[in-house]
Design a protein around this nucleic acid. Sequence first.
DNA 1: CAAATAGTGTCTATTAGACACTATGAG
DNA 2: CTCATAGTGTCTAATAGACACTATTTG
Lengths: 255, 255
Amino acid sequence: MSDNHAGPYSAAGFRTPDGAPTDIVVFTITKTERTGAKKALPLRKLAVMLIKRKQWPCEGMWALPGGFTREQETVEACARRELLEETGVADVHLAYFNVYSAPGRDPRGWMISHAFFALVEERYVASRRTSDEASDVSLWPVEEALAMELAFDHRSIVADALGRIRREMLTTTIAKEFLPETFTIAELYQVITAVVPSFEEKNFIRKVTSTQSRRGILEEVRDAEGRPMMSNRYSQRPAQLYRFTDYAPELSIYG
Amino acid sequence: MSDNHAGPYSAAGFRTPDGAPTDIVVFTITKTERTGAKKALPLRKLAVMLIKRKQWPCEGMWALPGGFTREQETVEACARRELLEETGVADVHLAYFNVYSAPGRDPRGWMISHAFFALVEERYVASRRTSDEASDVSLWPVEEALAMELAFDHRSIVADALGRIRREMLTTTIAKEFLPETFTIAELYQVITAVVPSFEEKNFIRKVTSTQSRRGILEEVRDAEGRPMMSNRYSQRPAQLYRFTDYAPELSIYG
DNA sequence: CAAATAGTGTCTATTAGACACTATGAG
DNA sequence: CTCATAGTGTCTAATAGACACTATTTG
């Protein structure tokens, strides 16, 4: 425990926070193969990773993974460390999205919490495991998670994170976080609709591949000889594989 | 000073933060009338409000207004209170945008700071005044502010806020925060280009008023008898006045 | 051949983008 | 009359949106 912190402010005896916790909302898209002999697209569902708390407070309740920031780390480093310690999940891309500071939100005292979200392919959370703090670590369909009573104010945190990724799914290329390096247009469409159920585009393949302004978001994957690479994992007729480029179009409501 | 905070966590003697400050980036657009007898559009420039610090640390340096959160308030309430106390500015719309937690960012100790931005018409900051903490409160053109040495990590906070409002200026209707209730298309265009210098639309008036998908962002202002209301404040020929509606178009990179 | 998914042809309405043009009122 | 700004006419190319159609493979 460090004590090189005695500046005039803290020395003056002001009340200071009892901790700066982080909470991490890890989203993934679960795939469940449809029964039946024929090749068919799997069902994809947006899910969120929750842990079952072992300790007071909110013992036994489902909660977001997270924990307390240490003096010599940033809140982002804390989120990364706690995610690993509590769930075994590593190497995910974390994005900070909000702070939760309502008085009384945590019975342990004055806690201002910093919330992150991550979008990952299911394989990243395949290695999840329980820990000292978590007697269970599970994926819950978002709608179920939002209908449950969660620890602290974690239900609003999940709701806020969901709102955020819904907006970002359509305006940025975060869909790529949920997808393997190369994927078919149908898979991309499924990912988008799993997150944004209201999304519907009739000529999706056209829009995403043929219009000038959006040409550049995706590129066709080709092999060493320049032949288009296809996938027939989920279809009879092989489908062209694509990957995201680094390009992101600029959106504007004014033109 | 309250001490109803003795939960098991803080009781365990862990090191806790020395404070949860807020920093507020108040943007405004300054208008300077052009010299010359004829009516002409004023020059509009994006500016940020800075205070000159009276106290240690960073005494005498320019800094963002802000201060320490109290136990019984949210960080947003703190930002609102500190802005009023330090600068006399009230009733502005604050948006939270980031947290700053790099170890060592504040010589007073372990301080995790919460940054807000506000966009206001110049008249909101007209009432600004000095205070116990600020020997001066001034508006600085953003480019100048970013070229100065500011207290703490405030330069990166200003830079981050600027990046954020540049993105939001084109994708949301925040332009309205900088404008009076009713305004002309030329004024709107000036506000947008003051924030996003690279913005250029040839047929701006057309885009914003005539295309189906964007019809609905703005509406023409009419008087009680339904006659279009015009303004000739900045032009010989009177220009139609518009106001923002509540509608915000949904943007998508996919179609 | 039927099923399941991938992808194209083709038509029309809307929009984008450029640029020349007209309109209004002050001085 | 000129200036400065507001706003329209008009043309072409690109895009959106609908829907019927063809293509590829499995079982």
